[in-house]
Amino acid sequence: MNLAPDLHHVQRILLTNPQLKVSILTLGASIQSVHLKGYAHSLVLGSSNLADYLGDAKYFGAVVGRVANRTAKGHAVIDGKTYQLPHTLPEPHHLHGGPAGTGSKIWSVIEQTDDMVQLQTKLADGEMGYPGNMVVNVFYRLVDSSLEMEITATTDKLTLCNFAGHSYVNLDGEGSILDHQLCVKADHYLPVDDELIPTGEVTPTEGSAFDFNQLRPIGRDDYPGLDTNFCLSLANRPLQTVATLKAPITGLSLDYQTTEPGLQVYDGRHIQLSAASNINQGALSAYAGLALEAQHWPDAVHQSHFPPTLLSPDNRYQQITRYVFH
């Protein structure tokens, strides 16, 4: 069975306002590039070669789901029934909705203006092992120097639902993000095992290597490596700044705002992309971009004390996340 999308059908959508120029791909509803007035480079990583989005640039800027992050062994029990979700090889776990999750689907354009686009995809009952027909919408909107992403979803059966935007940010457009400064307003984080599955512990950040409550260089001496969920709250909240990133060369800053209760921060340690594909100049290597992925906490289906990721037909999923550049 060929799960790969037909890249000939991918559209590129350009959103503009006086401050921003943003390219969106219908492949994965992906943010391909973000250009801020006065700066030549894109503030997010992207490829000029569509085929890379199924390979070396997989997940770059994509909306991943129907369940982002890892689900241990692909095992899930929903309303007393056991489901086996496909592993995302080479991992022995289900990652980002599976090998044909939303990050590798071609989305439909529903509505488009100069500074807004609405994309939609429909997920069938049983697709990637999940119950329920699901309709997912992503709205990208430019507001001054901000890029807003709103994700909504509905289902006709009780199912799991936990989407995330997966853009890699490098505000300098080159070099290592370990030289950026980061602040994450979180009092707790989730320790993980050797396969990056949460242990179930919810551990204070204070005094640990994961304490980013004050702006500080990411790659300082006690750098622990980041593929880590920071616990922001136990439920969705009004839109608010949860993280700040500051670049060492340009001095540009990003205030990352979300309604979600968790923030996965991944340091891009496995990034590899050729210079010919990079929309900015030069080859990309480890730590070339920082992924800030607002979502519910990972593997919540196995942890009853985590914010739940179940969506019923009576409810509507909604996430709002905003990138504020300055």
Rank of each mutant, 00 (worst) to 15 (best):
H9F: 11
Q11A: 12
R12I: 07
I13C: 11
N17Q: 13
S23L: 10
S23M: 13
L25Q: 06
T26D: 06
Q32C: 03
S33H: 08
Y39S: 07
Y39H: 15
S48I: 00
N49V: 10
Y53P: 03
L54W: 02
L85T: 02
H87R: 10
L89E: 15
H94P: 02
L95N: 05
G97L: 05
S104V: 14
S108M: 04
V109L: 05
V117E: 05
Q118R: 08
K122Q: 15
M134T: 12
V138Q: 04
F139K: 09
D144Q: 14
M149W: 00
A153M: 06
T154G: 00
K157W: 11
N162S: 13
F163S: 02
D172S: 02
L182T: 08
H188T: 05
D194W: 04
L196S: 12
P198V: 09
T199N: 07
E206H: 12
A209S: 15
F210W: 14
D211Q: 10
N213H: 11
L215G: 06
I218W: 11
D222S: 13
D222T: 13
P224C: 06
G225W: 11
P248G: 11
L252S: 08
D255Y: 07
Y256H: 08
P261H: 01
P261L: 00
Q264L: 14
Y266T: 06
D267R: 04
G268A: 10
S274N: 13
A276Q: 15
N278L: 03
A288L: 00
A288T: 03
A294Y: 02
Q295E: 13
Q295A: 10
P298C: 08
Q303I: 02
N315V: 00
Q318N: 10
R322M: 10
V324K: 05
F325S: 04
